[in-house]
Nucleic acid binder design. Structure first.
Lengths: 175, 175
DNA sequence: AACAATCAGGACCGCATGGGTCCTGTTAAG
DNA sequence: CTTAACAGGACCCATGCGGTCCTGATTGTT
């Protein structure tokens, strides 16, 4: 699968949402912050999950948090400065395809004559480089080719119309 | 984690083992084949797992099988022609990082206003390209920098000494 | 012709991991 | 002092992977 976690997907959504300047809570010396309930409402991701993602992103210093009333989160870098590798590392931990490379305790169980030991590093480096070369800004411009772009991010988009007719994608071909 | 399955790791081991010409069963009109028990014995991977991996590799036409007595498996391409992407696709299925891209049944549950729909394709392509650019031959030469290379593949290497002093890698820096 | 060896293709089970929720404490603005 | 929001856990459940096994089909050997 080579599948990355759904949380990482959410993190991208949340970060892009954060970049769209939360127009609601422009306080705190000009630094506009957004609350996790607000982001959850705007993105459709459940609030606890948004909170969890934001905590991880804060630990990774991708976003900054302001505690207390009128608090919230804000980006510390522009989307152009955030790479996919950053997000994946923040959410899923270090990028390592196999247990052999990311410091597994018992190493592989067939380490005796494992003829390919350490060779995955080559692949890991390639992956890592590929992920480092893509920024969130690039991902955003590549998305939403249709007219569904919300120009004003401060008025939370009503999900009704979008959910009905919007974005059929691959959901129809589901067995 | 972006972790790929352990089966894929085994597949690489098995394929490299297959490339080292099974010296035992040189039959079948000059096409030397190796049996799955033999490969299991040589690599240290349990036999059922080897068999499962080989079946998947056969379905993906990375190896050819000869049924019946004196049967076995052999490579259909040189290691130089097999990319990591081939192996991953054979074992783990198509390379797709998120459920949004590989035709998931329900699509993402937040598809309503998912602002990043389809944007993972960028990342997927980058990953796919990175994995396609690395062949098994490159992985083999990059491995085993020490004197642990077994010159004769038919005499199974005694695991004892190798397991003890061999290849410390990153296993020490765990946690 | 009978036998044995080997692959084919499933079904099956247990465990680990991730996804998701919730609870309690801490901070800061009003 | 109260309230709103983050911090940082603990916790449960489902999914999927790793691994094993069984039965049948095929083919060389005796």
């Amino acid at each position: 699968m080579l599948r990355l976690s759904k949380l990482t997907d959410y993190a991208v959504v949340v970060l892009i949402r954060l970049s769209e300047g939360g127009g609601e809570c422009a306080r705190l010396g000009g630094e506009p912050v957004q609350t996790s309930p607000g982001i959850a409402l705007a993105t459709g991701v459940p609030e606890p999950t948004v909170a969890k993602v934001l905590k991880a992103l804060t630990s990774a210093n991708l976003v900054a948090s302001q505690r207390g009333a009128r608090g919230g989160y804000r980006l510390v870098q522009a989307l152009e400065q955030i790479t996919i590798a950053d997000v994946i590392t923040a959410i899923d931990g270090p990028i390592a395809l196999t247990a052999c490379v990311d410091g597994a305790p018992g190493a592989c169980d067939v380490q005796n004559m494992c003829a390919v030991k350490g060779r995955w590093d080559l692949v890991n480096d390639a992956i890592r480089q590929a992920l480092t070369s893509i920024t969130l800004a690039e991902m955003r411009v590549a998305s939403v080719p249709m007219a569904f772009r919300l120009p004003a991010p401060d008025h939370l988009a009503p999900p009704d119309r979008l959910a009905q007719g919007g974005v059929p994608l691959a959901a129809s071909a589901a067995e």
